[in-house]
Design a protein around this nucleic acid. Structure first.
Lengths: 154, 154
DNA sequence: CCGTATCCATTCCGATACTG
DNA sequence: CAGTATCGGAATGGATACGG
């Protein structure tokens, strides 16, 4: 996404979109969460050309979303694995998923669902909250200049 | 996004990405949340060519993300307004924003922040939860076949 | 099996000019 | 102001062939 290059902007949305605001990247992350670890797994799961997958995977390695690690089973090859930064994309995928479930499917239509490993139940809905945990409606939010405070991390 | 057209897939992520998985669309939504309502406002805010903006806005109208309404001030023209479906994209923007804040900014670097209209405080972090409200880690989630149950709405 | 290199078609974007 | 029409250049995507 080059456009007029907003990558250096001080808007976290613009900067994020420059890195992951691309169809394939998020689909690769989706498959990684599903357990895909090898080149061929991503390729079969997504049905994209190898050259494209190659470029995307390398960029995601460069961006620190994926990393290459020795094969889990002890094979000679290496496998792709989500970094912590990549794992944190799960929230975005869930948000996208829940929006799609609400607005892009008919009732009764089959779909893939996310369930907690522990209870096997569909995960809860994401909620916008104020600092003290109360729910906020989508329109009760403003945007203003600020600074990343270290105390906000975590 | 044409690719191999996953739009009809039963994966909500793929289907969502087919509709909003595009750089400009989410940036337009971002500006709409910031208060942009007119063609020229979007154009100035995003710095994109008019022909592109024109196509994007029309598609978003078709998709029911935006709608045209009589000018708020009583002017002769009409203005773009987020539909309910569009307003629900706020959660996705917040998820994208928080990820970017965490991984794409240095401490102390200036950035735009979202604050609750009511208390003026930065909004809380999105949390993945199980059905009963307990927090879930990003890796403690599985994906399986399912159906959109009407009882899950809301 | 894991990629890279090449080629071609399509799409996307920006600039500009133009209409109502 | 709010778009539409056109054009050329750049990037993207798919297919295929090739190399480690």
């Amino acid at each position: 996404m080059r456009r007029t290059d907003l990558g250096g902007a001080n808007c976290p949305i613009a900067r994020s979109l420059d890195e992951i605001g691309d169809w394939w990247t998020l689909m690769i992350v989706r498959d990684a969460f599903r357990g895909a670890r090898r080149f061929s797994e991503f390729q079969r799961g997504l049905g994209l050309a190898k050259n494209i997958l190659s470029v995307r995977l390398r960029k995601m390695l460069d961006d620190g979303i994926l990393e290459l690690v020795p094969a889990a089973g002890g094979g000679a090859h290496r496998e792709y694995q989500l970094t912590d930064k990549g794992l944190r994309l799960r929230v975005i995928l869930v948000a996208i998923r829940q929006w799609g479930e609400d607005h892009l499917f008919e009732a009764g239509e089959p779909m893939m669902v996310m369930v907690g490993k522990e209870d096997g139940q569909p995960i809860g809905r994401l909620r916008l909250t104020s600092k003290d945990g109360r729910s906020i409606d989508p329109w009760d939010i403003d945007v203003k200049d600020g600074v990343r405070g270290t105390e906000d991390v975590g």
